[in-house]
Design a protein around this nucleic acid. Structure first.
Length: 352
DNA sequence: GGGCCCGCAGGG
DNA sequence: CCCTGCGGGCCC
């Protein structure tokens, strides 16, 4: 049996899908080579320029993942993981620690190195690049992976440690899909615990297009005597475009400035990394939609209004990595029937 | 797993 | 200076 809240969430998801579809973002508009796998000749090995740097296996110090070191030395690291080996997240974790399957670009970000190759920061975590720039950061390739948001910040990809939107005058510099801000939908589970609030998002992620929830509308302050100072709180008011973060994304939709996108492991999406945070390249805000979906108060009937944004990935970037199909069937079975995912699914399963 | 609380970086 | 924000680590 489905609670009213879950029903509303599913409705919101349908709305978000409709939002993307109405703009033609359900079509396989992205890289043709991603779609037509039947061309065996040219698509296979090179693709990632990341592998050019593969000759430098000198992982001096890993920030935190000490075991991600030179065990991967000579191997040509495949871009995608075989779905055969991908039954469990645990498997991936061990793979990550040996590093055997990871392209170099997945490791470059987690190292603090002196001068070996283009990096976003110096040894002492000092930035060499300014995060307040539109577009890519020199030396940081699409697909670069970090353990923490702090590391993302140090490499100038996404400056805020916590915030999801990096604000600039002509639009957002970058956004983080981190999963910790359900925003668009906070639901009470009637089925399990009457007071339990589930943090389920209604956002749709088709990889090359996705919806994004705005900021605000949550009371993070609490009272003077009892300041909440938490990073999560139930939606307690409407979101508006007066909010600086939302305003920035609205401006992005007007200026069409590119926005750097990182996906975090907490995102409920087949395009989310299993661990850490990954730079997925440049997107554009195609649309800023006011009052698109509804978040529900704990009491129920009073919905809060949410700012929704539609993102589209810019062309001529490396293909997006995608979780193996077997994991997705566990995660959630949504988005099975859209063209974009169909193509990506072929991509994911073609290594069998 | 959940609750608490400490940060930082950025913006006003 | 003040505040916030889709972290992270600690504790239980």
């Amino acid at each position: 049996m489905v609670s009213d809240y879950e029903r509303q969430r599913l409705l919101n998801i349908q709305r978000n899908k409709a939002l993307l579809t109405s703009m033609g973002l359900d079509k396989p508009f992205f890289e043709p080579e991603e779609v037509k796998r039947q061309k065996p000749s040219k698509s296979a090995p090179k693709k990632r320029k990341a592998e050019e740097h593969d000759g430098a296996p000198d992982a001096k110090k890993a920030t935190r993942v000490e075991s991600v070191k030179s065990t991967d030395s000579g191997e040509a690291s495949p871009l995608r993981r075989s779905s055969r080996n991908a039954g469990k997240t645990v498997d991936y974790k061990s793979e990550k620690q040996t590093g055997s399957h990871l392209p170099i670009s997945f490791k470059s970000g987690i190292r603090e190195m002196e001068n070996s190759g283009p990096l976003g920061r110096e040894a002492g975590s000092k930035r060499i690049h300014n995060p307040k720039t539109y577009g890519s950061i020199p030396g940081i390739e699409v697909g670069t992976w970090w353990e923490t948001r702090e590391a993302c910040s140090a490499d100038a990809i996404h400056a805020p440690w916590v915030g999801g939107i990096a604000v600039g005058p002509q639009g957002a510099y970058s956004v983080a899909l981190s999963g910790g801000y359900p925003g668009g939908a906070r639901f009470r589970s009637d089925d399990i615990d009457f007071l339990k609030v589930l943090s389920l998002s209604d956002d749709v992620d088709w990889g090359y297009a996705f919806t994004y929830t705005g900021s605000g509308g949550r009371d993070l302050k609490g009272t003077k005597a009892n300041p909440l100072n938490l990073r999560t709180a139930p939606q307690s008011s409407d979101q508006t475009f007066e909010n600086n973060f939302n305003k920035a994304l609205k401006i992005s939709a007007e200026t069409k400035k590119p926005v750097r996108v990182i996906r975090g492991f907490k995102v409920d999406s087949p395009y989310a990394p299993y661990e850490g945070y990954r730079y997925d390249g440049l997107y554009r805000v195609e649309k800023a939609n006011f009052l698109h979906s509804i978040a529900w108060q704990e009491q129920g009937m009073d919905g809060f209004l949410i700012c929704k944004f539609a993102f589209k990935r810019l062309p001529e970037q490396p293909p997006l990595p995608r979780r193996a199909a077997i994991d997705e069937s566990e995660d959630h079975a949504a988005d099975k029937d859209d063209g974009a995912n169909e193509a990506a699914q072929n991509e994911a399963s073609d290594e069998e």
